[in-house]
Design a protein around this nucleic acid. Structure first.
Lengths: 222, 222
DNA sequence: TGCATTTTTGCAATAGCTGCAAGTTTGCAT
DNA sequence: ATGCAAACTTGCAGCTATTGCAAAAATGCA
């Protein structure tokens, strides 16, 4: 099949983006509830029925770009520089994921954030994505550190995502500046790392690769 | 108004419980999607319209008992034995909340758990409750330890709830025994506590009430 | 017993979402 | 170029959740 992986595919992508961006525009103009699927479809020049072959629900259209970004990150993270210390890989995973979730995408980024914060349904969607991500992190932890116990992997990933998520929402809601937010996330990662180190220590009686790097990372943050 | 705080109120409570329990029963028998509001209303002997004056949505009926329990816990936690070390209060808060969320309520507890795990919409509802709870914990932290920084309070509460939630879901999904689950939660609290202690240490240059109690609690757990 | 208040109910309408079958478009082989 | 099969779009019909409104019924109390 595909020459350049499909002209068809590209057209689909374009339609998808059109729908998403028209939807966001309408949400910004008249509000979320006030915009119907029919409105969105009309604005994007497709039939209402078609909307649902691109997005499973009205809510999902808000997360179109976030989802794309998360997919990219997931791809990227599967290739890890050989020899990289596990702890660093974990940190990078968390940072990259958070970046994908936190970045304001496109022209309507601010709108998305606002909608997600104020509509309970959308908040729930966002949370769902958080936990999906957490599951992946958990899997990655398990793969990277075979020594770590099942429970520790689960707990650590939950702790990390939970902490980050909580802080992100807080910063968003109180209108922190990007720098303040970055600072807050660095601090959060430092707290998280306490737990992470402990889990690592428990699994690292015989380190397989490199330094445990106890509690001084906190690097550049998000 | 009220003699014994209303005969009317009691009747309302009874109706509420009837609706919830009939709903759960039907969900168990034919499945969630397959049960309509009309079915539930019929089984509970009320009009479909009335259903919505007791529960704002079909999803909420699944959480009827959980919500009651959470309300109780919230009440109880406002009275704290004077002189209790802050760290202990925090631990008790977390434990109590988790107990409320984890306990299988009534005859259909298992059904609830299963539904929540498999229906994304219900999972989202549960997550929402988690974050609501997390907000309260955050507030409590802030009140108990005026010294703690805003961000630390937010981060710690997110870490605690995130870690616990993650582990609970994991245990549920893999059919852990109650003992195994308790053990897992104890371990999780130990990991969480690493971060908690660090936040406490940062705030406790001049302790206002009692001992800092660095990192050895991990008590009886959940 | 009768009144004021609360609760229940019926009716009608909106909107999200799905299955289905028919109509169109597209990529590719001949 | 031509034609076919696969992929995509569309319209339609229908189901269910959810809400507003105003009438009807139930309740607690004077």
């Amino acid at each position: 099949m595909g020459h350049v992986e499909g002209l068809r595919q590209r057209k689909k992508q374009r339609t998808r983006r059109t729908i998403a961006s028209e939807a966001l525009r309408l949400f910004a103009e008249r509000g979320y509830e006030e915009t119907t699927i029919a409105d969105i479809a009309a604005a994007a020049d497709v039939s209402p029925r078609t909307f649902f072959s691109y997005f499973p629900s009205k809510e999902d259209v808000v997360f179109a770009e976030v989802d794309d970004r998360l997919a990219e990150v997931a791809d990227r993270l599967t290739q890890r520089p050989p020899g990289e210390p596990p702890m660093e890989t974990i940190r990078r995973s968390i940072v990259d994921i958070m970046e994908a979730l936190v970045t304001e995408h496109g022209a309507y980024g601010a709108v998305q954030v606002q909608l997600i914060l104020e509509r309970p349904g959308l908040r729930a969607c966002a949370l769902q994505r958080m936990t999906d991500t957490q599951q992946e992190l958990q899997q990655r932890l398990h793969d990277l550190c075979p020594g770590i116990s099942e429970i520790d992997a689960v707990a650590v990933s939950g702790i990390a995502i939970g902490g980050m998520q909580s802080v992100i929402v807080h910063c968003r809601r109180h209108g922190y500046s990007p720098e303040a937010m970055r600072h807050a996330l660095d601090r959060t990662f430092a707290l998280v790392e306490q737990g992470v180190s402990m889990a690592f220590a428990a699994s690292m009686s015989s380190p397989s690769g490199s330094d445990p790097e106890p509690q001084k990372a906190a690097g550049r943050g998000v």
